[in-house]
Simulated assay, not measured.
Amino acid sequence: METDCTRDEARMNGLASLPAGTRLLHIGPHKTGTTSIQGALFAAKDQLPAHGVEFPAHTRHPMEAALAACARPAMMGDTVPTDQHWTKLLRQVEATGKKTSVVSSEFFADADDEATIARIVEQLGGERVHVLVTLRPLAKIMPSQWQQYVQNGLRMGYEDWLTHMLKKAPYEQPNPSFWRRHRHDRLIERWARVVGPERVTVVVVDDSDKGGLMRTFEALLGLPANLLQPVPDTANRSLTLAETEMLRNLNKEFRGNELPDELYSKLVRNGAVMHMKNTCSPSPEDVKISTPAWALEAAAGVGAEMVERIGELGVRVLGDPALLTVVPKPPVWEAPAEPRIAPEVAAHALYGALAAAAAVPVRHTSAAKARTVHQTSSKELVKVLCHRCLKKLRRH
């Protein structure tokens, strides 16, 4: 395994840029700095061509294209990705000609077989493709990934979810995608078998080096130092424990009443949650999602297994693999605070749902059952009343 332990050492060891014309495919996985890199590349999109590099996508993250390429479903209630999304991205990549181009989506990590990976690589340019994988310790990924699953309808609490992911073989429920993405040794092996280990670079992200990942991308792409800069993105912030628990309990009500997925996508995830993220910043008093000690130790053990296997694959590793095996020090014990949602946060979430309802009328995918007023919950009556009011306002 070729290892460059730090960015500075990598430069001293002559970390060369990838050959001109390379099609750099950054496959994530999730929660490893993908959003920050995508935002920085998109913000610098107009400056990149002067340095022989193109970012061939019209949005920061071509998620639908990646989902279509991997034949994976969309997030709950979202528009189903089609081959047209993938074909459009391929045309954009082809239009870059002989320039170096970079495509980044963590959803490429969801490709679960070599046939799918081989097709993606061939369509993107075959031997021109170089695969980049970014890694962080599982202990830092798990809480972020759990709250992201909750934003997609998960109803299971954090410790129960950890028990299923770490203790209940075959470790596939309730989210089979977790280990497909985050058993990083197997993820790297799947792609290395297709493109060859010499065309795979693994970057271990060091959270103590805030600009390290940006500088590594600049070095690989042959860009001037500090061209890539982080772009603030409140919509991508993690939820606090209270916010996540509020949403998780809403998910229970949502599923219990058999409401359509389209409603969840438009009013909850892209309405209430999105507005809450954009308008409310967590305070130091907010209770964070805390991983119990047993899960931290289990995650570090899995990390050690992955590091050993990655070392046998022959791929290039930039950064310190030992970071993936560290057991974080548990915080000083204090009486657990009860997570409480602030009134203003709840108000912003409610407003986000109402604003989304006003902007985009939701069409139910299944016929509603006829019920009397007395058989209908107060929540549903309020929803119906709001819908009727909105219809009247639109007519006026």
Rank of each mutant, 00 (worst) to 15 (best):
T6L: 06
R7N: 11
S17Y: 02
T22G: 03
T22P: 00
T22I: 04
L25Y: 07
H30N: 07
H30L: 00
T35Y: 04
S36L: 03
A40D: 00
D46H: 01
G52T: 03
E54D: 14
E54I: 11
P56C: 04
H58K: 09
T59Y: 03
P62R: 01
A68H: 07
A71R: 12
D78S: 15
D78E: 14
T82F: 08
D83A: 12
H85N: 14
K88P: 02
Q92M: 08
V93G: 09
G97C: 08
G97L: 14
K98G: 13
K98V: 08
K99P: 01
T100D: 10
E106Q: 04
A109E: 02
A109V: 03
A111P: 06
D113P: 03
A118Q: 09
I120V: 14
E122I: 02
E122H: 13
L124Y: 13
G126E: 00
R128C: 06
K140D: 10
K140Y: 05
Q145T: 10
N152F: 06
E159W: 10
E159D: 13
E159P: 07
D160A: 12
D160N: 10
D160T: 09
T163I: 06
H164W: 04
K167T: 07
K167P: 04
K168Y: 10
Y171K: 11
E172I: 04
Q173E: 15
F178R: 09
W179K: 15
R190W: 09
V200I: 03
V200Y: 00
V200E: 00
V200C: 04
T201H: 15
V203F: 14
S208G: 11
G211F: 08
L213E: 07
L213A: 13
M214T: 03
R215M: 05
T216G: 00
F217K: 02
A219Y: 08
L223M: 06
P224I: 00
P224Y: 06
P232H: 14
A235Q: 13
L239D: 08
L239T: 14
N249D: 15
N251T: 08
N251E: 04
E253D: 15
G256S: 12
L259K: 02
P260G: 05
P260H: 03
K266C: 06
G271S: 10
M274Y: 08
H275I: 06
C280F: 05
V287D: 01
I289K: 10
I289W: 01
S290Y: 10
T291L: 12
L296K: 09
A300R: 09
M306F: 02
V307Q: 15
E308Q: 11
E308D: 09
E312H: 15
L318W: 01
G319M: 05
V326Y: 13
V327A: 05
V327T: 12
P328E: 12
A335I: 10
R340T: 15
R340F: 05
I341P: 01
I341G: 01
H348N: 10
L350G: 04
L350F: 03
Y351T: 06
G352T: 13
A353W: 14
P361R: 13
P361L: 14
S378D: 08
L385A: 12
L385W: 11
H387F: 05
R388I: 02
K391D: 11
L393R: 10
